[in-house]
Amino acid sequence: MRPILELVGVTAGYGRIEVLHGVDLALPRGAVMALLGPNGAGKTTLLRVVSGQIRATGGHVHLGGAHVNGASADALARAGLCTIPEGRSVFPNLTVRDNLRLATYAGARAADVYGTAFDRFPRLAERAHQLAGSLSGGEQQMLAMARALATDPAVLLVDELSMGLAPLVVRELYEVVAGLAADGVSVLVVEQFADAALAVADRAAVLVHGRVVATGGPDEISDELANLYLGSVT
């Protein structure tokens, strides 16, 4: 079966600076893939290309078999691609409830969104009328994940889920990711710190200097990681 997300020779960058120099990557249907790599490797840029925030300057992006180079971010989101960008991806001056209400743009019904979100994260129900900006970092990330849960996407892209969060919270969030994958959602997780992501992943890829240097099972990649990050000594 053809992978749900496929990148072939993708190049992209900012202005005249090219960050991705021909990336090949395939995310199998229903898999959780961890995309690892050191600072500045181009992980976030890759997610931006896939989510439609920047346009690839070369190569092809296929989503669900369709060629999606240059598709707008909002169209991709409505088509079933859920992106949780780096940092706290909530609207700080809106209440928790209003944040969830906006999730319905991706096609879910409001009642379902509230129901799913508040069932999985009871803490959010307690804070439904509080401004999202006044939540703790972990609660904000829960709110972001609740959107992913409630809108039932085909593909989920998550950037640096663990950034600045307590290990316990990170574990809880990755349980949600694993649960989504069990329901058939294909997930691409970008992480700089590999362990948490590799624990739930069934595939992994390593991006260094804008190129994918290795792909494989999480165990192989885990063993190789130090060499891949630092480069082999000749």
Binding site: P85, S89, F91, P92, L94, D98, N99, Y105, A106
Partner: peptide
């Protein structure tokens, strides 16, 4: 209304609103 919430959200973070699927 949802569009009203989207109007307020677009001040906070327009790019994120697009990732939510709204036609900003």
């Amino acid at each position: 209304t949802r569009i009203g919430a989207a109007m307020r959200a677009s001040v906070d973070n327009r790019d994120l609103l697009r990732l939510y699927g709204a036609r900003t």
